[in-house]
Nucleic acid binder design. Sequence first.
DNA 1: AATGAATGAGAATTCATTCAT
DNA 2: TATGAATGAATTCTCATTCAT
Lengths: 227, 227, 227, 227
Amino acid sequence: MGERVYHKEAFDRAKPEYRDAVLTAGIAEFSELGLEKANINVIAKKAGVSVGLLYKYFETKEDFFITCVEEATKTLEEIIDGVVNSDDKLLVRAEKLIRAIQATSGADSKYVKLYNEITRLSGNDGAAELAAKVEGLSASTYRNFIEAARKSGDIRSDCDTAMFAFFFDTLLMTLQFSYTCDYYRERLKLFCGDDIFGDDERMVKELLKFIESAFTFEHADVKRLEH
Amino acid sequence: MGERVYHKEAFDRAKPEYRDAVLTAGIAEFSELGLEKANINVIAKKAGVSVGLLYKYFETKEDFFITCVEEATKTLEEIIDGVVNSDDKLLVRAEKLIRAIQATSGADSKYVKLYNEITRLSGNDGAAELAAKVEGLSASTYRNFIEAARKSGDIRSDCDTAMFAFFFDTLLMTLQFSYTCDYYRERLKLFCGDDIFGDDERMVKELLKFIESAFTFEHADVKRLEH
Amino acid sequence: MGERVYHKEAFDRAKPEYRDAVLTAGIAEFSELGLEKANINVIAKKAGVSVGLLYKYFETKEDFFITCVEEATKTLEEIIDGVVNSDDKLLVRAEKLIRAIQATSGADSKYVKLYNEITRLSGNDGAAELAAKVEGLSASTYRNFIEAARKSGDIRSDCDTAMFAFFFDTLLMTLQFSYTCDYYRERLKLFCGDDIFGDDERMVKELLKFIESAFTFEHADVKRLEH
Amino acid sequence: MGERVYHKEAFDRAKPEYRDAVLTAGIAEFSELGLEKANINVIAKKAGVSVGLLYKYFETKEDFFITCVEEATKTLEEIIDGVVNSDDKLLVRAEKLIRAIQATSGADSKYVKLYNEITRLSGNDGAAELAAKVEGLSASTYRNFIEAARKSGDIRSDCDTAMFAFFFDTLLMTLQFSYTCDYYRERLKLFCGDDIFGDDERMVKELLKFIESAFTFEHADVKRLEH
DNA sequence: AATGAATGAGAATTCATTCAT
DNA sequence: TATGAATGAATTCTCATTCAT
């Protein structure tokens, strides 16, 4: 799990300026064009290094791509998760995350796009390993956090915390794509109109409403309210 | 909106057996390998027709791909939406959809994979038009349905129905991918464990729980229940 | 010599409207794009007949091309030579030809372009046979005419009439190209300026001057004039 | 005017042996088969380089072709013009040029064939630019030279020197083709018989005769001689 | 005779990868 | 370590030609 490394030793030894240039160019190009359409020779030129060097750092184009993805998702995680405090309650945390996601749609969109790009990888492409690396942390973080919230009575007691963590993450992940990736943006517009991108508060308010209710009320409450 | 057609007239005139063979082979190959890695010559061979004919039907590989996508999503929509009745209530509808999604992960997975594949298209690739075609129907169906439910008092009155339709669709769309596409499958496993694919009822129960609460309780209820 | 025919019998039996449509479309397309870049399927469509029929008429694209060339040069010859009377003297004839050439640069340019196109054919392409067909008539006409003029004392007596016929034809043939074919037009402009195409009289006057002197004066005259 | 370059920078940096091999193979193949029928992969093989390298040097097959043409016409110009001295009189110059043309019909015929090939280029193909490059020099050289001859009284005073330069060049250019290109060879044979290729003196003598008279006598002379 | 759907060899071009310097 | 020239297999797309109807 996460055993294999996707770069050669030379990359570890590389001058930081080269490392950075290579990753920056790779992330920019792969996020814009995707794995297949991106061109190694072009990336090398944009990075200001030779193709030869790139192949000293990475065995194949795919390996280079994955290294870029790892870097991108790590950065993205820092940006997004960086806004929450460990003692934020669920709704506070959700609000902060939503706002962070909305803020990320600009200059940092390349990280999200790259994240979206891996979403279609298949078994051969190392989907499992990559998923473990990319989703592993947030999966367990969310699960633990929600489990704790449940135990402390902050949220409903009758939920499968693993699944609810999954639903929570699903909503936020898709939100990220919806603010950044062309297809998802169009989809969001079709549901909510073009104005949605000019009215961040609406999204914050409604999504929080949705999440709050989902996480708060138990089925027993249904009965109670029916009176 | 959906103005441009992605096939030549010859495709309309084509013998049904050719039409079908071509679409079947295209859907199979594109869903497995993606737009770029799929090979036109291979598809032609598998379809039992010549490359030349393929190019009589479609201007470019991209056009052929999009035609396959349209066919796939149309089929998928029929499969998925075919299970609900127009007078099903939200939860009934949701349950039927979830079960249909779970059932689709087998032989029909190719349609979902192809749907997942378009999710990364960018503006140049005609993301907007495609999104309109693919998501347009379900977007308005959901919005109308949920708006009606709100008016009739079946669901909470304080929600932005467009947005709630979006959240609803988001959960189901991602569920589809999670049962079918490698990366999403891994992600689901990370959240809920490998057993999730052997325990369909768990998913049904928990997701319904999540949706029911999200759609039922108003913020006012929070106050009421606090007593 | 001219033995081989470049069309099948079916073409002789063809309905005149088909014959004409096919030749017209062929001449238009071949003259504009050249043998290789012209497209048989496009020509068939423009002619309003099926490709199948075209191949009932001609064995190969090359044969069809040659048939078009024959037709075009025949037409061209009629247009150009049609203006002279059999008893015109050399200079009168030359003037009429020059003016006819200038007039041909418009709608009939396709015939000239097609003529220019064959000019690059090689042995394999049947250059010899084609040249015999296309140039044969004017070669012998000119030779005979000039020989007669020499005998009658209308032109200098010390010339090799075959060669002088060749030079005469060379000047006129190149003039044709210079009024019609892009490269030759540019070449003419480089020598004489862009205005040359707006001043037909200049060309008539100067070329006649050139030809008159070339055909009139014997070397002996040089001596005589030196006094 | 000749602004655009038809090769990439890599071609400037290329090893001379590669440059030469590529140009030699290109000129050979293009002159024999023409732009369309020549095959890039075959040329690469004959040049002893990879196709990839060819495409490092040239953007497209067309660009490569034009570069070959430029090289060929440059070489041809050197061969042909190399035989004249700047102070040669018109007839001397003409004779030297004719003899040079006759001598070129052997091993160097490929340069002439390539020159003939461009003669059919159209506007889209960059006919104008190419004509400027190829004909530009000789056009102005001839014009200046003939103008000077007129002023010094070496030739007739009543001629439009630009036009006479054009006629002069026309005769020599066509002569080149007539000694080298299949169609033009056949045409020459039709006018002058097969023996013409075995009797170079005849051509020299007659063409000089033609040119001498054309350039020497004024119209006034006609009157004078009539007595 | 007339059609036009169907073929498939062929050609231009791309680009991941190598390797001599 | 760093370069970038060189490779050539692979892929998309074209189009002359065939043939069943």
